[in-house]
């Protein structure tokens, strides 16, 4: 059994606004193993962004602990190691891009780590190639599209060689094409062994993960595979959430046609299921 990469233990957190405390997270515990692909869903204000900011010590628990690879995020002395292990990408790439040339932006974190120039070049090449932005390396980032900028932001994180990538609604400002670009990159990184934790409102994106965690009022209320989670349509709707279009279709078809598998969650599964059932149409005597 692989050791957990991130351990969240009884995490509680509150924001203090003018002396009044606003509790956001209550007694949250979960573990993320190396190579897992976890999606966190929940409605606006449920606490999911606050939770994701705890995973590399941007925020630290009011009570409870977050332990990354053995380092507690409350220990300032290990912050550098923690941030290197767990990289973070936010909603607006513009907030994360600092340099005026793509390549320099990717190098920014490495300079701070005092990486020798030869290795730096290697890492930049690797990071830009991973997100498919090599040909843009000498361009100014503000002339790139949203999806391209977000890929540059991811490259900046990849250059640090993290074990885990945290995406906080990293695709919500992008168009379908831009979102698919990012999802493709993320899937590839995950296939190569990187753990992914992604906060999103897109149920079709959640369907791609190996595990879905549902947050409501600062508590984990569901935790399971996408297929398990998306069977609970009524409960998700109550939580202001939804199920992917493919699931909705599968359930509708199943209600008329009981042989049809109602637990499907991907578009291509629907197509395969139709093919399967239509091939079987030969009357069996």
């Amino acid at each position: 059994m692989a050791l957990p990469l991130i351990q969240v233990k009884n995490l509680s957190f509150e924001y203090a606004v003018n002396q009044t405390k606003i509790p956001v997270l209550h007694d949250i515990s979960f573990e993320v193993k190396p190579g897992e692909y976890v999606v966190i869903i929940g409605h606006n204000g449920s606490g999911k962004s606050t939770l994701s900011k705890h995973l590399n010590g941007i925020l630290t628990p009011v009570s409870g602990d977050v332990v990354v690879n053995g380092w507690n995020t409350k220990e300032w002395s290990s912050m550098r190691e923690i941030r290197q292990k767990v990289g973070m990408v936010f909603q607006h790439p513009d907030n994360q891009i600092v340099a005026t040339i793509v390549e320099d932006d990717v190098a920014f974190g490495l300079e701070n780590l005092e990486i020798p120039p030869s290795e730096m070049k290697e890492r930049i090449d690797f990071a830009l190639a991973s997100v498919g932005m090599n040909e843009f390396r000498n361009r100014p980032p503000h002339y790139l599209s949203g999806g391209q900028k977000q890929r540059v932001a991811i490259a900046g994180v990849l250059a640090m060689k993290p074990d885990c990538l945290v995406l906080d609604e990293a695709t919500s400002m992008l168009d379908t094409h831009g979102r698919n670009e990012i999802l493709k990159v993320v899937r590839k990184l995950n296939d190569e062994g990187m753990a992914i934790i992604s906060v999103t409102h897109h149920m079709s994106e959640a369907a791609q993960a190996s595990r879905v965690i549902v947050i409501e009022k600062g508590r984990i209320i569901m935790d399971g595979t996408p297929r398990e989670i998306f069977q609970q349509e009524e409960e998700l709707k109550r939580l202001h959430l939804d199920i992917p279009v493919a699931s909705q279709m599968a359930r509708k078809v199943q209600s008329h046609h009981h042989d049809f598998n109602g637990t499907l969650i991907h578009n291509d599964e629907i197509v395969k299921e139709v093919v399967r059932l239509s091939q079987r149409e030969v009357p069996v005597i």
């Binding site: 168009d175 379908t176 094409h177 698919n180 079709s204 279009v245 279709m249 578009n267 197509v271 139709v274």
Partner: peptide, 20 residues
């Protein structure tokens, strides 16, 4: 032109491509 269609249309298009 890099514009998607709804998932419903996407699924139907895939089925059509398979001859349905």
């Amino acid at each position: 032109h890099y514009i998607g269609t709804p998932d419903t249309v996407e699924i139907l298009a895939q089925l059509k491509a398979k001859g349905f």
